[in-house]
Design a binder for these strands. Sequence first.
DNA 1: CCTACCGATCGGTAGG
DNA 2: CCTACCGATCGGTAGG
Lengths: 207, 207
Amino acid sequence: MSPRNSALEAGRTRRRIVDRGLELSSVEGLEGLTIGRLAADLGMSKAGVLGHFGTKESLQLAVVDAAAEQFMHEVTQPARGIPPGLAHLRALCEAWVSYLERQVLPGGCFFTAAAAEFDGRTGPVRDAIAAMDALWLRDLGIHIRRAISAGDLPPDSDGDQLLYELAGTMLALNHHLQLHHDRRASTHARRAIQRLLTPDPALKALR
Amino acid sequence: MSPRNSALEAGRTRRRIVDRGLELSSVEGLEGLTIGRLAADLGMSKAGVLGHFGTKESLQLAVVDAAAEQFMHEVTQPARGIPPGLAHLRALCEAWVSYLERQVLPGGCFFTAAAAEFDGRTGPVRDAIAAMDALWLRDLGIHIRRAISAGDLPPDSDGDQLLYELAGTMLALNHHLQLHHDRRASTHARRAIQRLLTPDPALKALR
DNA sequence: CCTACCGATCGGTAGG
DNA sequence: CCTACCGATCGGTAGG
């Protein structure tokens, strides 16, 4: 069972390694994740783990990919059916809050942690993290502009400003949940989102 | 000059170690900071560095203290002369933005990075980071409530909510500056603060 | 504050 | 996917 696995078995083992690596690195960091501990945790040898990736950096890149996949599945999937505009944007934000609230990963948001860990470095891992973060922000920005042009938000709204403040809301949620175990944080996050994503009532009256 | 220093010289060396350790750890992380690299960077031996602290954990705690001292000096000092209430609160926030904007530490905000790195761990270092963060939030909360009770902000303002959103604004500023080198971020931060710390004009008219 | 160590663990390789 | 290694570096100690 151990040596000479089929390609299918090897693929499954690779997934097990990456999935567990994602969980561990959300707690210990992506650099703090070591091949030895990951192998011990999975009941494998170090060489058995490393054989699937070649280098630690390649393993880290696989973990970043898996994190992006999980995040997209958890946050964009629940909003799939909802029509574009403000309703869709609200659904994305609610799924985002829920994702952090349910602590899908033991260490909270992988990208928040990885961004803080790698933002001062250079190389492919830092680039991959920054690219994924930028991709999600871009995606969110599209939904914001769609909500504005649909008339769901005031036409003079600053989309970039709104995007910035939504991102801050989620960073604060992760921070308060992980560092202070403050469960009121999700209430604060939902209130902030509610305020950011409610059309100005004064402008509404003008229509 | 190297061996047999006076107590005064030893104190100076200790400060040099901690100051450089603070700079390095803002980039490499507080765990990623190693005694060997710190020593090499300072032109000292590992034993020479470690002799001042005994253990790495003790060095880390000294760095956390130095970070708190620097933060307090940079952010609360500029607001010293300004009377309590909204003006003082605004001065604190502006100093906070400026502190991150000027990149006083090469890796950005030490506490944001350290919080993300240690929030999943246990022990004295994690506790010290959480305590310093909580102390600053408490301090900021006092100024917020003071501004509310002084009538500078609407009497029905939710102080905790305001505190949460100010914290998110700063976390987002650090994130965008460090990960995306996005210099528009400080404009977004100042706009968010401006909006959060402006008395509701509708309520103002009622007075 | 230095030299000279210590055992443990790091990422990675050879060979099966 | 395993055993058995490799050199480098980790935190830390002894002794001066």
